[in-house]
Simulated scan of single mutants.
Amino acid sequence: MDILQILFFAGLAVFLGVRLYMVLGKPSGRTAEDVEREQRERAEAAGAMPSPPSMRPPQEDTPFAASFSGPAGEGLTAIAQHDPSFDPKEFTKGAKAAYEMIVTAYAKGDREALQPLLSERVMKAYNQAISAREDQSLTMTTEIDRIKSAEISEASLNDNRAKVKIAFSAELASVTRNAQGDVVEGDLTTLKTVDEIWSFERDVTNDNPNWRLSGVKPA
């Protein structure tokens, strides 16, 4: 073995020795008493921690007890007891969205959009009105400026059939034109207030959560 190889291996041995000392031989500064104390503190802390949620004893089930007040309170409570997901506030929000969709879809004659939103009886009436317009080559445009108010006025549950009535007050403009584009009725520049009561129904035993419009009458 030549002198270069001897120097190389000697240097390598010194390097490895230094690395081993840094990793294994360097004093940690912790005594046996320190280690014992840390282990004891960790054990005490673990014993004081609460059990994870999945490990806790089961709680007694509490019955659904939602109740609502007001003129429709009794009916709303009955509906909620059969359908725990029912929330009057969320229902009203959905009804307002349905109001806008139905009014604009009816004006456009969009039967496909109306079908899932209307009961069979109302769909039949709307379809007849749309067909009458089409037979006369009339087109209708309705623009909703705003829904001034939407309040639940009545609610009931009969034979699993839930019904909720909402009193709507809306400002809108509407115009009907003939095939030549001439105005037959209405004016888009003039707003009018429309006050109506819309009735929505749903079978609470049905997995389908959608409510359908089952009736409209003047307020």
Score class of each variant (00 low, 15 high):
2 D>M: 00
3 I>D: 10
5 Q>Y: 09
6 I>Y: 01
7 L>R: 14
8 F>G: 08
8 F>T: 14
11 G>T: 08
12 L>Q: 04
15 F>M: 13
15 F>V: 14
15 F>P: 01
15 F>G: 13
16 L>W: 10
16 L>M: 11
17 G>H: 00
19 R>M: 15
26 K>P: 04
31 T>P: 01
31 T>W: 13
34 D>A: 03
34 D>L: 08
35 V>N: 11
36 E>L: 00
38 E>N: 02
38 E>H: 00
39 Q>D: 06
41 E>T: 02
41 E>N: 14
41 E>G: 03
41 E>W: 11
42 R>S: 02
44 E>R: 12
45 A>R: 12
46 A>G: 12
46 A>M: 14
47 G>F: 12
49 M>E: 15
50 P>A: 01
52 P>L: 15
53 P>R: 08
54 S>N: 11
54 S>I: 06
56 R>I: 04
56 R>G: 04
60 E>R: 10
60 E>P: 01
64 F>S: 12
66 A>H: 11
67 S>L: 07
67 S>H: 13
69 S>E: 15
69 S>H: 14
70 G>D: 04
71 P>I: 13
74 E>C: 06
74 E>M: 13
74 E>D: 13
75 G>A: 06
76 L>N: 06
77 T>A: 15
77 T>N: 10
80 A>V: 04
82 H>R: 14
82 H>E: 15
87 D>W: 11
88 P>N: 12
92 T>V: 15
93 K>H: 15
98 A>V: 05
100 E>I: 15
103 V>Q: 07
106 Y>S: 14
108 K>V: 01
109 G>P: 03
110 D>K: 06
111 R>M: 14
111 R>C: 06
111 R>N: 12
112 E>W: 07
113 A>N: 00
114 L>N: 04
115 Q>Y: 10
115 Q>D: 11
115 Q>P: 01
117 L>E: 08
118 L>F: 08
119 S>V: 07
120 E>V: 13
121 R>K: 13
122 V>A: 07
123 M>A: 10
123 M>F: 12
126 Y>R: 02
126 Y>V: 08
127 N>E: 11
128 Q>A: 12
129 A>V: 00
129 A>K: 04
133 R>L: 05
134 E>H: 07
135 D>C: 03
138 L>C: 07
139 T>W: 00
139 T>F: 04
140 M>T: 12
141 T>V: 03
142 T>L: 03
143 E>H: 06
145 D>M: 08
145 D>A: 13
146 R>G: 01
147 I>C: 09
148 K>G: 12
148 K>E: 15
149 S>V: 07
149 S>K: 06
151 E>L: 11
151 E>H: 09
152 I>A: 00
153 S>I: 08
155 A>F: 09
157 L>W: 04
157 L>Y: 08
161 R>A: 11
162 A>F: 11
168 F>C: 01
169 S>Y: 00
169 S>H: 03
170 A>R: 00
172 L>D: 07
175 V>D: 04
178 N>T: 07
180 Q>C: 08
182 D>T: 09
186 G>M: 04
186 G>Y: 00
187 D>Y: 05
187 D>M: 04
193 T>Y: 06
195 D>H: 11
196 E>F: 07
204 V>Q: 01
205 T>F: 07
207 D>C: 05
207 D>G: 08
208 N>T: 06
209 P>Q: 09
209 P>G: 01
212 R>G: 09
219 A>T: 01
